[in-house]
Design a protein around this nucleic acid. Structure first.
Lengths: 343, 343
DNA sequence: CTGAAAGCGCTTACAG
DNA sequence: CTGAAAGCGCTTACAG
């Protein structure tokens, strides 16, 4: 390794003190009354020698790592992948690096990741919480580590949030089906105490009740997040065969919709002739499938930007506040071919 | 911020020297001949106080950050998102953190990211190179920063590589079309000097020539990476309308296939009746679309694992070697409904 | 305008 | 078995 040059080397070469060089590096040259000429000489040498300040030393001294941690459910998922991308870009613009990782919705993994991140001295965290993460998050608050939760709430935890109005998205989708004449609407969701899935089920229920349609438990299929793709596809296939009366099916999240399409294909149910389909979340498949799928889309960019803005504002705020901020983002109903007016 | 406890605090509380505590923390207790009892007491207190070593100080002292940088083309893309996920998981298992970011195939962004990563003292890098990155990568070699390139080669640069056998994947897809009776096969690719796109075009060409079919420039459509989705869709739509004689279309990468499906839908060309379709890379859409799309898939897990293994072996190797290693991964041809034997 | 020096939290060679 | 101390590269209060 060609020895890295340090601030000391620069100072020696320029016959200046370390302090002077450091001030220039940190843009405090003028403020400290260092002559323009000196400043110029320092800057020239920095460029010439390709000097890169040692972040570890800086961090050790200042306690600011200019790194944030981003913990999402699944990096391989379209929604999270793109949220991560936008957050990374915005953070970078503002001088922050991002540590990124996925929990696969596993609480143990999530806890370990949070610890690892703290261990690496991140200045703050953006987290998709899993179930059972409340204690760990409370510890963060306790230790004044800034963090923002997104995509879902943790019940009875005061924190900074960026969440979608899940109830509304679900309600809108269901209402759209109802107003197009569908009356026996099934829902496929996951067994989950996480707020967003419950809200989606509620939105569905509310729309049904409002239209004087029965909310029938036998119209609800719940699969488990941990189930393999094959198990989920089979479960959906079985469900629609058993509940032949259904005229529409609502998938409560991205990947359920994907598996649902696969399941319907398998049991030869034609969308929308045999059954209308709508789903939460948008993706390439829904957009381009024939028929294209009606969805409640999450405004990815807005969610990501709000999350990073909120986090950085907390990090950079001088005084600590006890006030938490919640941003609620409205989903966008996109009507497509999979849910036409019923004949 | 509740003051963080340091190794000094632990030492004071236990009436031991800092060195003793440090040895225990680093598992060198026995080696240094510290009594079992003392080791036990230290470990207990660490747990009790929830002590987390300060990584910055460690890094400053040892020069090892246990962090690697991962620079991919686009985190929002199915392939890269999943590669990132696997790399992150494997790195984590082996005690490494990952800085992750996307270049959007922009050389300037890539250069900045590499600098930022170095600045953050990563122990090594895994990079999807963009065009025009050769100088920056040579600097890395020069400074003995370990790195592994993946997904594509940089011409005339000796380095560690993990790449797909792109020529073979393309050749296999084209040959598959030919043996199913297609004779006028178009290809949609991107204007790009990057090795993998050239190899894919070559594989296509080789298969044609081998079958005594003409390799006709007018059957090749090249779009630009920077073009907007709408522009690409339009270009493809125009291309197929102009080249009505085509009986099959080969998309050289994931997102071109996605846009291609959209374009064909727009101009009402039915797959596979009017035109067979095959694509490089697999994804949900290709798998579930009706008809499902024949692809040459990249074994994501294998690519990711090979890349991280290769990088960590270089990082952890004591002596520096001048030998570079190239791993070539075989793509997997998955025949589906979009390319049946021609009637 | 500039310099000498402390100290961030750790690791490790050295001394006993 | 254990302790005192140097030093990693920086920032910054203090002194001139």
């Amino acid at each position: 390794m060609t020895k890295k040059i340090s601030i000391k080397d620069l100072a020696k070469e320029l016959q200046l003190s370390i302090a002077t060089v450091s001030f220039v590096i940190n843009g405090k040259g003028e403020e400290m009354g260092i002559s323009e000429q000196t400043i110029g000489k320092v800057i020239d040498l920095i460029r010439k020698r390709d000097y890169i300040p040692n972040n570890a030393a800086r961090l050790l001294r200042t306690g600011k790592s200019h790194t944030i941690g981003l913990i999402v459910e699944d990096l391989g998922n379209y929604f999270f992948g793109n949220v991560a991308k936008v957050i990374e870009l915005e953070a970078s613009k503002r001088g922050y690096n991002v540590f990124l990782c996925s929990t696969d919705n596993n609480a143990k993994t999530a806890k370990e990741l949070i610890r690892k991140m703290r261990n690496s001295s991140v200045d703050g965290l953006i987290i998709t919480p899993t179930k059972g993460l409340k204690d760990e998050l409370e510890k963060l608050s306790w230790d004044n580590v800034p963090y923002v939760l997104f995509d879902r709430l943790v019940s009875e935890l005061d924190a900074n949030y960026v969440v979608l109005d899940n109830r509304k998205g679900s309600y809108d989708l269901t209402k759209h089906l109802i107003s197009n004449g569908y009356e026996d609407i099934g829902i496929v969701t996951i067994v989950n105490e996480m707020s967003q899935m419950q809200e989606r089920e509620e939105g569905y229920k509310d729309a049904l009740l409002e239209a004087d349609l029965a909310y029938d438990k036998s119209n609800v299929l719940k699969v488990r997040f941990d189930d393999s793709p094959e198990e989920i596809v089979d479960a959906i296939a079985k469900f629609v065969k058993k509940r032949k009366g259904l005229d529409a099916l609502f998938f409560a999240t991205n990947y359920l919709g994907v598996y649902g399409i696969e399941a319907l294909k398998k049991v030869k149910i034609k969308i929308p002739y045999d059954m209308a389909v709508v789903s939460f979340d948008d993706n390439d498949l829904f957009r381009l499938f024939t028929p294209s799928i009606t969805v409640a889309a999450q405004p990815i960019r807005e969610i990501a930007v709000q999350a990073i803005d909120l986090l950085l504002s907390v990090i950079e705020k001088k005084e600590l506040t006890d006030k938490y901020i919640a941003k609620v983002i409205a989903p966008v109903l996109i009507q497509r071919e999979s849910s036409p007016p019923k004949l």
